[in-house]
Design a protein around this nucleic acid. Structure first.
Length: 856
RNA sequence: GGGCAGUUAGCUCAGCUGGUAGAGCAUCGCCCUUACAAGGCGGGGGUCAAAGGUUCGAUCCCUUUACUGCCCACCA
C-alpha cells in the first residue's frame, strides 16, 4: 500500500477536489510575484459582466484561459492572472432593477447606486466561488471591480487624456437612444431582430395635383415629418420638384426635395423624412438642414406635437395612428412585410427598438481613425487567425463615433462641468476620482457663470476597455513597470466589436500602441436542438446549434448543476476538447467521457504505483537510459509528445495537445503497462532489468501527470501528493516545471521504430488474437510461443520485445523462427494453435491440462 | 449584398508541411484477466458535400457550385 492510497477502485473527486483547492489557496500558489525576475506572462482576464448568473458557456471559455495560465506557470513564467468582474454601468443597473423591482429613474440616485453595489458584491462572490470550485488558478487576491475607486480613477484619467488629445468631443446631435433604459448607447450595442411590419401607403396632398403617395412603416412619426424625398431621376415625380405637400392628418406643409438616396424601386419611390425614423433621416437632416420635430420623448412617449397620440408609447401610437388614418380614408393600401425580410435595430440589453434623440453627448472619434485601428489589429497576433477578419470587418463598417455618455446613475461619472455659455471644465488627473454631481471644480468659470456638473456616467465599455491599464496600475504609486502591452487577451468572439475593439482603440489613442501581443478568441457553447423538415423526412436527426438563452433555458446549463454531476476536472477536460475559436454543441456525454477518463487515469496510476513499491528512482536530471526496448520506445514517444505539447500550447491549441496526450495515455495503458508489469513483480529477480522497468515506469507516469496537470489539476495533484512528492519534494505538482523538449536518443528512435513498424506492437496483438480466437484464457500459460517475422517484420526486431512478451503471454519459452514447419506435432498432452498473417506468423503450444483447468 | 468559417463512420468531432482515412459515443461479438465491468480485447460501418484543375499521387493545394452556421451591411 502506497502512502494513504485507498482501496477503492473508483476515483472520488467529491472530497479530493475541494481539499486541493484549499491547499493551493493556503499556499498562495497562484499569487503574482511582483518582484520575481522570471519573465511575466500577463492575462487580460475578461471581467464577467454582472448581468446575471454565469452559464456553461462562460465556464467553457474561461477554462481555456485557465489551462493556458497553468501551462505558462509551469514553463517558467511569472503569471499574472487576475480575477475581475464588471459591475459598473447599465447591465448591473438592469439586473438590480430586475431583482429589486425598482426602476433607476424613479429611485434616489445615491440610494440606487448603493443597491447596485450590493448586487455587484453578491454576484462577485458567486463568480469567485464558481471559479474556485473549478480549480481556477486566478490570483483571487488581485481581484478587481470596474466600479472600484482605482477603476474610476483610471477610467476618468482615460477620459481626460482623450479629451486633451482631441479624440473626444461633446456634440449636440442625434444619438442612438433606448427609450426603455432611458439612455443613449453605441453602435456596438445594436442587436438586429427580425420583426414583421407593415407598409402604409399614405397620400400627401399637393394643391392642384394628384396627391404624392409614400410608403411608411412608421405612421406614428407623421407629426415629425420634415419633408419628402424623391430621386432626381425619377420621372414619375418630375412635376413635384420644389412643390409643397401636406402631411396627412396633421396638415402641416413640407417640401418635396431631391436626393439620390431616395430609392426609386422601394415602396412608392417617394419617401418621407422624419426626425428621426432611421439613420438615413439623420443624414438627410444634416445635409438638407431640415427642422427638428421631435415626436418621441426620452422615455418613449409621444410628444405634444403628435396631437391625439401624445402620451402614448410608440407601439400603441403606431396602432392608433393607423386606426385614425384608416377611419379618415387616408390609408390607400397596406402591405405586410414578413419578419424574414424586415430587420429592426434594437438595444441589445433589453430588445427595445432603437430611437434617435438629440442630446448633448460625448463621442470618441473612432470613425476618422479606422485605418490606424485596423493597423493596430494587424500588429496583434490573433488566435485563431481568421478572427481578425471580424475585427476588420467591424472597423471598416463603422459609421458612428463611439457615444460614451449614458444618462444613467450607476457607473463612473463623466468628469466634466459646463457653463451655460459653453465653457467646459475637465479636472486635473491628480484630483480623481471625481463626481461632478457632488464635487465642484477648483476654479470659477471665465464668465463667472455657475458650473453645471455632468450628471451622466460612462458607457460600461468605456471603463472595461481600460482593463490593461487597471492591471498595470497605470498612474498609481505602485504602477507595474513594463507591463504593457500585456501578453494575452482571452475573450469570446461575440465581443470582438465591443471589448476587443474598444480596448485596442483606447490603447492606440493613449499610447499609440497595442494593448496586448496576442488575442485568443474562444467560441460559444450552443444548445443542441432539432432541425429541419428535410432531415426529419429522411428519418435523420440533426443537431442544430442554437444560442443558450439565460431566460429560456433556466437551470439546464447552470454550471452549479453540472458540477453536482461531474468532477471539476471532467468539466475542464470537456472544455479543453474543443478546437480553438469554434462553437461547440453542448454535450453532457462529453463530460461523462471525461469522468471515465479520470477513473482510468486514477486506476492506471494507482496500478503503476503498486509496481513501484519500495522503489527509489534515479532522478530525472540524472542520465538514465533503459536497456529494454519497450522502455525505450515509450520514453521516446513521451519525448515526442512533450515536443508537440509545447508547440500546440504556443499556438493556444490546447485541444490538439490533449488529443496527442490522450492517445499516448491510452497506449501506455493498453500496451506499455501490460508489458512492463512483469518486470516489476516481486518475484522478478533480474535486478538490472527491474530497475530499468521501474525507472521507466516512474518517468512515464510522472510525465503524464505533469502534462495533464494544467488540464486536470486536482487528480494530478492527488496522485502527486500520494507518491511522487516524497522524491520530487515540491509542495505541489503545479510548482514543478513541465519537461522541456528534448532530443531523442538513437536507441529511443530505433526502439520506437521497432515497436511501431518493426513488429513489436504487432506481436502483442498477435498473442491477444491467438488466445482469443482459440478460446485460450488470457491467463493460460503457454509451453512455447513461436513467432515468424515476414516481409518488413524482422525477427531481430521482434527479439527486442520477447522477454516482455513472454511475461505478458505467460509463455515458458519464446522462439523466433524463419518459418513454422507445416504439420508440426505437439508433444503428448499438448495442443498447437497457429495464426498466419502477411506480416507475422504465430504459433502457440499449450498443455491440454492447462486449458481444461482454465475452463473449470 | 459584403465577409468568415464549416460540409469526413448512425452521432459529436480529429486529421501536422498532399502518399488511397482516425478517436470517442452508438452498434455487434468475445472476456470477471492479479489496475480499471462506468472495464478489457476484437469486429462491422466512410466513393472524406458535388464538379473541374494542378500532381506520379489530393480529404488535404487551386477554381466553381450547392448547402449549413456566424459576423457585418440593408431597415422609408
Amino acid at each position: 500500500m502506497i502512502n494513504g492510497m485507498s482501496e477503492s477502485t473508483r476515483y472520488e473527486p467529491k472530497t479530493i477536489e475541494p481539499r486541493w483547492q484549499k491547499y493551493w489557496q493556503d499556499l498562495g500558489l497562484y499569487r503574482f510575484q511582483e518582484t520575481s525576475n522570471k519573465p511575466v506572462y500577463s492575462i487580460d482576464t475578461p471581467p464577467p459582466t454582472v448581468s446575471g448568473r454565469l452559464h456553461i458557456g462562460h465556464v467553457f471559455s474561461y477554462t481555456h484561459t485557465e489551462i493556458t495560465s497553468r501551462y505558462h506557470r509551469m514553463t517558467g513564467h511569472n503569471v499574472y492572472y487576475p480575477f475581475g468582474y464588471d459591475d459598473n454601468g447599465l447591465p448591473t443597473e438592469i439586473l438590480t432593477e430586475r431583482e429589486t423591482g425598482v426602476k433607476a429613474y424613479q429611485a434616489d440616485r445615491q440610494k440606487f447606486r448603493e443597491m447596485c453595489l450590493e448586487t455587484g458584491k453578491k454576484y462577485a462572490e458567486l463568480f469567485s466561488s464558481l471559479w474556485q470550485k473549478l480549480g481556477f488558478s486566478c490570483d483571487f487576491g488581485a481581484a478587481y471591480s470596474t466600479i472600484s475607486r482605482e477603476s474610476q480613477k483610471i477610467s476618468q484619467w482615460s477620459f481626460i487624456d482623450l479629451f486633451h488629445k482631441g479624440f473626444l468631443e461633446r456634440r449636440n446631435e442625434p444619438a442612438l437612444w433606448c427609450t426603455n433604459c432611458v439612455t443613449s448607447f453605441a453602435q456596438a450595442e445594436i442587436d438586429d431582430v427580425n420583426k414583421a411590419g407593415k407598409y402604409l401607403h399614405l397620400p400627401f396632398n399637393v394643391p392642384g395635383m394628384e396627391p404624392i403617395v409614400i410608403a411608411t412603416t412608421r405612421p406614428e412619426l407623421l407629426a415629425a415629418c420634415a419633408c419628402l424625398f424623391v430621386h432626381p431621376d425619377d420621372k414619375r415625380f418630375l412635376a413635384y420638384h420644389g412643390k409643397k405637400a401636406k402631411v396627412p392628418f396633421y396638415d402641416h406643409e413640407v417640401p418635396v426635395l431631391l436626393d439620390s438616396k431616395a430609392q426609386m424601386d422601394k415602396g412608392t419611390g417617394a419617401v418621407m423624412c422624419c426626425t428621426f425614423g432611421d439613420t438615413t433621416d439623420i443624414a438627410w437632416w444634416r445635409q438638407h438642414k431640415l427642422p427638428l420635430r421631435e415626436a418621441i420623448s426620452k422615455i418613449g412617449k409621444m410628444t405634444e406635437i403628435t396631437g391625439p397620440l401624445a402620451g402614448l408609447r410608440v407601439e400603441a401610437a403606431k396602432k392608433e395612428m393607423e386606426k385614425v388614418l384608416t377611419e379618415k380614408g387616408l390609408v390607400l393600401k397596406t402591405v405586410d412585410i414578413p419578419a424574414e425580410t424586415r430587420v429592426v435595430n434594437t438595444h441589445e440589453r433589453c430588445g427595445t427598438p432603437v430611437e434617435f434623440l438629440v442630446q448633448p453627448q460625448w463621442f470618441v472619434q473612432v470613425v476618422k481613425h479606422k485605418e490606424k485601428l485596423i493597423e493596430m489589429g494587424r500588429k496583434i497576433k490573433w488566435h485563431p487567425e481568421f478572427m481578425r477578419h471580424r475585427y476588420e470587418n467591424w472597423v471598416e463598417n463603422l459609421s458612428w463615433d463611439w457615444a460614451i455618455s449614458r444618462q444613467r446613475s450607476f457607473g463612473v461619472p463623466i468628469p466634466a462641468w459646463y457653463t451655460e455659455d459653453g465653457e467646459v471644465y475637465v479636472p486635473e488627473t491628480t484630483d480623481l476620482p471625481v463626481d461632478p454631481t457632488l464635487h465642484k471644480p477648483k476654479r470659477s468659470s471665465k464668465s463667472g457663470a455657475p458650473w453645471i456638473g455632468d450628471a451622466d456616467v460612462l458607457d460600461t465599455w468605456a471603463t472595461s476597455s481600460v482593463t490593461p491599464l487597471l492591471n498595470a496600475r497605470h498612474g498609481a504609486e505602485n504602477e507595474r513597470p513594463n507591463f504593457l502591452p500585456m501578453s494575452m487577451r482571452p475573450q469570446a468572439h461575440d465581443i470582438i466589436r465591443t471589448w476587443a475593439f474598444y480596448t485596442i482603440a483606447k490603447s492606440y489613442f493613449h499610447f499609440g500602441e497595442v494593448p496586448w501581443k496576442e488575442i485568443v478568441v474562444s467560441g460559444h457553447v450552443k444548445k443542441p436542438g432539432q432541425q429541419v423538415e428535410a432531415a426529419q423526412m429522411a428519418g435523420q436527426e440533426f443537431a442544430k446549434k442554437t444560442k443558450i438563452s439565460k431566460s429560456k433555458d433556466g437551470d439546464t446549463y447552470a454550471p452549479e448543476k453540472m458540477m453536482e454531476r461531474h468532477p471539476s476536472d471532467a468539466i475542464r477536460l470537456w472544455s479543453a476538447a474543443a478546437s480553438i475559436g469554434l462553437d461547440v454543441p453542448f454535450d453532457e456525454n462529453g463530460m461523462n467521457d471525461a469522468s471515465k477518463f479520470l477513473n482510468k487515469f486514477w486506476n492506471a496510476s494507482r496500478f503503476a504505483l503498486m509496481n513501484l513499491e519500495s522503489f527509489v528512482p534515479k532522478f530525472l536530471n540524472e542520465k538514465f537510459e533503459s536497456r529494454n526496448a519497450n522502455d525505450l520506445q515509450v520514453l521516446g514517444r513521451l519525448k515526442k509528445i512533450v515536443k508537440a505539447y509545447h508547440e500546440n500550447f504556443q499556438s493556444y491549441e490546447l485541444h490538439k495537445a490533449k488529443i496527442e496526450l490522450d492517445k499516448f495515455f491510452w497506449d501506455v495503458c493498453d500496451d506499455y503497462i501490460e508489458l512492463v508489469k512483469y518486470r516489476c513483480l516481486k518475484e522478478y529477480t533480474n535486478s538490472e532489468d527491474k530497475s530499468d522497468a521501474q525507472n521507466s515506469l516512474y518517468r512515464v507516469i510522472f510525465g503524464l501527470l505533469q502534462l495533464y496537470a494544467p488540464y486536470a489539476p486536482h487528480i494530478t495533484e492527488e496522485i502527486y501528493q500520494m507518491y511522487f512528492k516524497q522524491f520530487e519534494k515540491a509542495e505541489s505538482i503545479h510548482l514543478i516545471d513541465l519537461p522541456k523538449t528534448a532530443e531523442l536518443s538513437t536507441a529511443e528512435n530505433s526502439a520506437m521504430e521497432a515497436w511501431m513498424n518493426g513488429g513489436g506492437k504487432l506481436s502483442l496483438a498477435a498473442v491477444r488474437r491467438i488466445k482469443k480466437d482459440n478460446a485460450i484464457s488470457y491467463r493460460t500459460p503457454l509451453k512455447v510461443l513461436t513467432l515468424v517475422g515476414k516481409g518488413p517484420i524482422k525477427n531481430e526486431n521482434l527479439k527486442l520485445f520477447t522477454a516482455d512478451l513472454a511475461g505478458f503471454a505467460f509463455a515458458e519459452m519464446v522462439e523466433l523462427k524463419s518459418a513454422i514447419a507445416a504439420g508440426a506435432q505437439p508433444q503428448t498432452g499438448n495442443k498447437i494453435f497457429r495464426l498466419e498473417t502477411d506480416d507475422l506468423d504465430i504459433q502457440v503450444e499449450v498443455s491440454e491440462e492447462a486449458m481444461v483447468k482454465k475452463l473449470n
